[in-house]
Design a protein around this nucleic acid. Structure first.
Lengths: 127, 127
DNA sequence: TCAAATATGCAACTTTGTTGCAAAATACTT
DNA sequence: AAGTATTTTGCAACAAAGTTGCATATTTGA
């Protein structure tokens, strides 16, 4: 994977952000220095390489966040932490210390990945 | 809430579908009889009235499904079942019989809703 | 049946995401 | 370090998704 300015900047943006980011967030945090298309492609590349993961949402605003060690470890990629979306400030964060509980599916179903998004009020907003 | 043809048809589409539906699905199942805008507005109305709920996803394809009794009961709306997305056929369904397990959040966070989406292979695809 | 309230369709628009292609940047070879 | 092959980028053009205002049509309720 080539190390380009765009990729370095986008990675920096992730490294310096405590919250998960939308495409739009990234675009503006890069001061619109890069083409939209480049950002789309870079995000896809980062996902393919296992650097970031996507966080599902109901507002058609997919968010991306850096993967941590647990995420990358043990052969194949596996996101096993809970995501939290604050309804007040709108921020989404990875709760790395909260593990997704196992669920038992009805017979006949096979499980590959579990995604859990909790919404409520975050620490800073609750104060 | 007025009982209009559009609303009746869209409700029928949901009643006769075993899977969750995207906006697009609904549009074509109604044989494009209704304007896109009408469908957007009807879906929003159904959500507001607690008739349907949204299922988060990472593919910017929000899906909608009917709420069941559990979903509607006890004062305020609360979706507490697991959603399953089959990676082979692409269908998303509500696993009404699988309850979302409780998670303990770090102190300072308050929880309002949990959304769990499991992906893997469904019963019919596994056969 | 009629008036008030509500819902619909249309047009126009914004935002989001995709694709092909030429130019630019990066990596690789010697 | 130079030159070539490979990869990445930006641009243009497009497709799809979602929103808003407004006039018309449909429902509701008196």
């Amino acid at each position: 994977m080539s190390l380009t300015n765009g990729r370095k900047s986008i990675l920096d943006v992730f490294l310096s952000s405590k919250t998960a980011l939308t495409h739009q967030d990234i675009e503006s945090k890069c001061s619109n220095q890069f083409d939209r298309v480049t950002i789309y492609r870079t995000l896809q590349t980062f996902i393919d390489k296992g650097l970031i993961h996507t966080i599902p949402s109901t507002d058609s605003n997919i968010r991306y966040a850096l993967c941590n060690e647990a995420c990358l470890g043990s052969g194949h990629h596996h996101d096993n932490h809970v995501h939290f979306k604050c309804e007040r400030c709108g921020d989404t964060i990875c709760l790395d210390e909260v593990t997704v509980p196992v669920v038992k599916l009805p017979s006949g179903y096979s499980l590959r990945e579990i995604n859990m998004v909790v919404s409520g009020t975050c620490r800073s907003c609750k104060k």
